[in-house]
Design a protein around this nucleic acid. Structure first.
Lengths: 200, 200, 200, 200
DNA sequence: AATGAATGAGTTTTCATTCAT
DNA sequence: GATGAATGAAAACTCATTCAT
């Protein structure tokens, strides 16, 4: 009798191996053989489970996106006020599981790669649109609509910027510093608006 | 009669072709044949001029960095005050030549790629360090040292974030919007500090 | 409790699946996985029963030859005169079970394949020799020895020709037309000889 | 300066190698490496010229069809009467270049293979339709329309039958015997009709 | 200097076969 | 007996690089 649940486990370990391989060798240099070896299986098995290199990479990217979405949703479920929700979104983007060197590297690789791969592109756009509308909605509790949009875009940019810089740095990841940087941006923007509102 | 300067011209056009190819196909999918065809020369010639694919890519990245450095230095030469110098650095990062879809795409590709390529990594670190120290120095005219460092890092993050988001977007590039986003960050941070300073 | 006769049934259904697979995908493109799936069993079982792909294919070809031989022998057992025996041989070659699209396709595939596979080749030669001698013997009732050999060869050629053309055609099989074509050849040859004999 | 005309020569020699490889190993067992080796070139070159294995095989089949068509057309150009045209068509089908063991083997392989390959199928149908209409037309000089059609189909069947039997036989090819067999069929059919016509 | 034909090493992919369960 | 997960050898295919012209 074949082991039940083996497939899910194999897929998970292969996706993990893919993330690690991207981290160590770079997206453009990974080979199926490397990934298979890293996962401790034969080359043929990767095709057995994923069909092709492209599909393995696509599955890996979907996995990263799913995990990120999960982290954010978890944070949101514990947030009561708009301000807390904004913080939850930010923190979710730097959640423990996400903000690891290998994951950061893979994430960025897919992010950039998606520019020329339609299916990946579509996934990212959906995520980006959700993030933007979610941030905008909660920012509107403090800032008028037009500014809220701009600040949401700024927040997303800051998140991406912090992320890409972390990928390049060889400093060990510092979630708190990353979160502070983005929170500071949001806080200052809200404060600036309140000040302006008070003066006028 | 061999045309003088032919070599420089060829090299330039091959680097251009490389940038375009990365834009259209993605870093991991470009081939020497594509680049050669795009530049209208034979495959052999690329090797004749650059020796290898790696060297062509390295030369292309150096070219992008040089152009960026040039743009920033030009801006700085016309700036008289610290605040103007900060703006010059920001504007330089979104200079007309730099902020084109193909250049953005190539830039990001190298940026991410550099994570696993030592020589590229070194070049980027030097540039990043210069940018950081330059921004910090000029920010100290408005903010104390510790905060200046933090804001410089935030500014650099915001620049990178705006850049990467532009690469993914299919909206046509908007230099002014990009610059405004970063300037707004800097401005708000300076203002926030002044306010705090005034209060205390 | 193991079902008795299960093995024979499995083997038959796998041979059937092989014939169908050759029909749909072509001899050079079939895989063990396809055959197994078609027969509704696991891939491993095919090996369990046949040992290897080659052996499965060999068994399938033997099966086709056996069935053909059976059909011809049945016809012969009901034939009383030489002329009837000739007709029985012809009709046997287009017997109902044999002259089905999938069987035709598989038969031809093996026929051609046998050119480069010794064991298959031997089987076919034996069958061909029997067919030739059988036809020749019965034709001698109407035609002198030398001509009988020639007409036997012609009859065999016509049978093969009709068969291969049926395999290529997408018209539904027409046993009667096929039989008529060959019978007409034989009949005309016998008649031609009689006429010549009468004249001289 | 690259050798002009090299491409056509290479393509020809690769197609030749393909025919030989099919002859020796069988359609389902040939590999690109074998073909390349046989043509005395590297494996990569085959892809360079034909793009893929499928395309190489398709080109080879087209080549065989073209050569056959050429042989028949040449014969026809020297034929004055309907009867001569019929003989020209038959002889063309067994022309010297065509009726060589390797060519026969390859031809049959493609013939059978075409059953499951649309593009090949289309080519063969066109050839078959032309052959049928050509034979029918010329037979009508001797036989009424309905019979002419039947005899044309019989002639084509006999040609295919003689061909496939030659492929299987290890006897050296005998053009004259092959031609006689088919000519005899045609002649006897025409004679049979004349006799019937005379009687009635 | 310039070409593009040719190579061959490296990569993905396929699939018969094995084997633990 | 039966499964299907797993293997690994062999195949197609890609592409940077070389080199004769």
């Amino acid at each position: 009798m074949p082991k039940v649940g083996m497939e899910a486990e194999r897929r998970r370990s292969l996706i993990h191996a893919t993330v690690d391989a991207i981290h160590e060798r770079g997206y453009s240099d990974i080979t199926m053989a490397q990934i298979a070896k890293r996962a401790g299986v034969s080359g043929g098995l990767v095709h057995h489970y994923f069909g092709s290199k492209d599909q393995l990479l696509a599955a890996t990217m979907r996995h990263l996106l799913t995990e990120l979405g999960k982290a954010i949703r978890e944070g949101l479920s514990n947030a009561a006020t708009p301000r807390e929700r904004i913080s939850a979104i930010i923190a979710g983007n730097f959640a423990h599981d996400q903000f690891q060197p290998a994951v950061i590297a893979a994430w960025l690789a897919f992010y950039v790669q998606s520019r020329t791969t339609d299916s990946n592109n579509r996934l990212l756009r959906i995520y980006a649109a959700r993030l933007a509308s979610n941030l905008t909605f909660n920012l509107r509790a403090f800032i008028p609509r037009e500014d809220a949009r701009r600040v949401a875009e700024g927040t997303a940019s800051m998140i991406d910027g912090v992320w890409i810089r972390q990928a390049l740095s060889d400093a060990s990841t510092d979630r708190n510093a990353a979160i502070s940087m983005v929170e500071d941006y949001v806080e200052t923007q809200i404060a600036a608006h309140s000040a302006r509102a008070a003066t006028s």
